[in-house]
Design a protein around this nucleic acid. Structure first.
Lengths: 336, 336
DNA sequence: AACATTAGGGTTATCGATAACCCTAATGAG
DNA sequence: CTCATTAGGGTTATCGATAACCCTAATGTT
């Protein structure tokens, strides 16, 4: 690999002069500058960012840790983050924890040893606390995405899970549904708790008793376990509608229903949080509370960079992006 | 940040001893080793991989450059690559070129300056040649994914686009279709050329003349331009079936058709390359030639690491993964 | 004319870790 | 008892780039 010393030798200057040309600092005559630049091109010089980072104590790299790269919500978020990072002059190091705390821990160590300038962190859940504390202990700025983690104060960009859930459930109630089931994510994820609360509030507001028999808490990703769903349906007074707490759960629920010959929406209404992008483009079927995932990422990077550059207020900032109720055809009036 | 010198001072040894403990090299007594390790934990030491990379001349980082992070094909591929990289002890630096040569170039420079050990490269198209040549000029090993680039010899993992296309078109022919349109990607992408060839061969094999009026070449991502499609349909002898060269194009085509009140598959059959994952899980509708995207990534990393570690044969290796024809309901027998 | 500036560039130390080599006391061999 | 080994660890130089400071000749000032 060619280094600034190679350039220096060939251009008959010192390495420092080359460095000054590269960074546009110091006093260099136009003549010398041109000569150096020409040699740089001839030798195909590419600066070594490891060496640079070592002395500058900064890398111009941000890390984005998401929990599921196959989920459209996170890939849209990633694109928002990437575009925003690029605009601000940062590179992005992606990580994918697969909703797995062990993988998440590995990534945190990797992040620390890479000395990234900051982290956009979508936590797997409440137990991510110690990973965030580790980042903080090492003074790495971070912004939390999507899921709040009790016990940690920080900038965060999230959706309005409670309100979104309320909107969906009220929509179902307005269609005449009274027995509404909730297929939720794990309760150690903040969004799952809030969606549960929104669900409960909507019911209460309309004088409907919350029946815990109608609520399942599993994981946002285990959308293939059908046993619990079966139990749900075999109750004396089964639900007429199901609120799935995210897109993957909705797909799992609908698949399971169809396998049993239960049609959606004819026999069962289904709504969910998060849109499906391509799916919905192909077939506008699922009624959802869609979140502006791209904005999540773009906004997150912006907050993060402000934090890194010290231009942010000292207090932590909470950005809550509203979700949009998109009514399609997976739910219908009860009885008809 | 804590360095090995801090550890050394507190443990009353030299920095070199700490380094030896970390890397398990040299001769260190069990007693000293334990003492050093204890101090490392107390101080929460994390090695600086930039410093390490500088002297070792290797980073343990691989780069994965894809062309569209919102396409399920590439996200599955990314997961395969990630799992495989992790297993082999490498970190993964993602990049997303958005099918844009300029972005791709930026990423190549970034990759070079990061001094990654190797690159898994999904090229935007034929003009990626100069980017690959640049990598080669700098002696960075790479494996090409999905799309071959004329003019460059290298390891490559790709699908069998020609065969997959033939299968799809023959399937349509067997259903009785004779007027079959092709909505293709840009011809400066190898897979688009091969899918076109497969399409042509299938027609020829069955004695059907290829009518260029039925062929559109656009981009794999511009699936929203409906004008050309309109022309296609307004011909004297319009097509009865459409072969879309990838999943996004299929979605665009179907949307455009529906907007005009043309039903799929009743009025028009549609098939395509690449599956839609979530969509297909929700609604097994599109008949597709599905590629094993996860294997693409996993296999790619494996080839790459073999290349890096010098355990590969000197000749470049071409891995071709077959696609699978999945028949669902977006195409039907003509006339019925 | 004498001194102060400044343009243009060079020297040296440093970031954190490791390779290559060196050193010393203790142990072993004969 | 004497010399050779070895266990255990330390010294020094190096990776590539930059910060901080230094140096010299030319230019400007009064």
């Amino acid at each position: 690999m060619v280094t600034i010393y190679d350039i220096a030798a060939k251009a008959n200057v010192s390495a420092m002069t080359v460095s000054k040309v590269i960074n546009n600092t110091g006093r260099i005559s136009e003549q010398t500058r041109k000569r150096v630049k020409k040699v740089m091109e001839e030798l195909n010089y590419i600066p070594n960012s490891n060496a640079r980072s070592l002395v500058l104590q900064q890398t111009q790299i941000l890390s984005l840790l998401i929990t599921d790269i196959t989920n459209p919500f996170y890939t849209s978020l990633a694109r928002g983050a990437e575009d925003s990072a690029k605009k601000l002059g940062y590179r992005l190091l992606f990580g994918n924890s697969d909703e797995d705390y062990t993988k998440e821990q590995d990534y945190v160590d990797m992040i620390l040893s890479t000395r990234v300038d900051g982290v956009l962190f979508a936590p797997a859940g409440d137990h991510s606390l110690k990973h965030l504390e580790k980042l903080r202990a090492h003074n790495i700025p971070f912004v939390i995405m999507d899921r709040a983690v009790p016990g940690i104060e920080s900038d965060i960009v999230s959706g309005d899970s409670k309100q979104g859930a309320r909107n969906l459930v009220e929509y179902l109630i307005n269609l005449g549904h009274r027995r509404i089931a909730l297929v939720n994510g794990s309760l150690d994820v903040s969004t799952a708790r809030l969606r549960y609360q929104g669900y409960a509030e909507a019911l209460q507001l309309h004088g409907i008793a919350l029946d815990e028999e109608l609520v399942i808490h599993k994981s946002y990703r285990e959308y293939k376990d059908e046993d619990q769903l079966l139990q749900l349906l075999q109750q004396p007074s089964p639900p007429t509608a199901i609120f799935a707490a995210n897109n993957f759960l909705a797909v799992g629920v609908i698949n399971a229903l169809r396998k049993r010959g239960i049609r959606v929406p004819e026999d069962m209404s289904v709504v969910c949080f998060d849109d499906l992008d391509l799916s919905s483009a192909l077939d506008p079927f699922l009624t959802v509370a869609a979140q502006p995932a791209y904005q999540f990422g773009a906004m997150g990077i912006q907050l993060l960079v402000e934090r890194i550059q010290g231009s942010a207020v000292p207090e932590s900032r909470k950005v809550i992006l509203p979700s949009e109720l998109i009514i399609r055809s997976s739910a219908r009036t009860i009885g008809k």
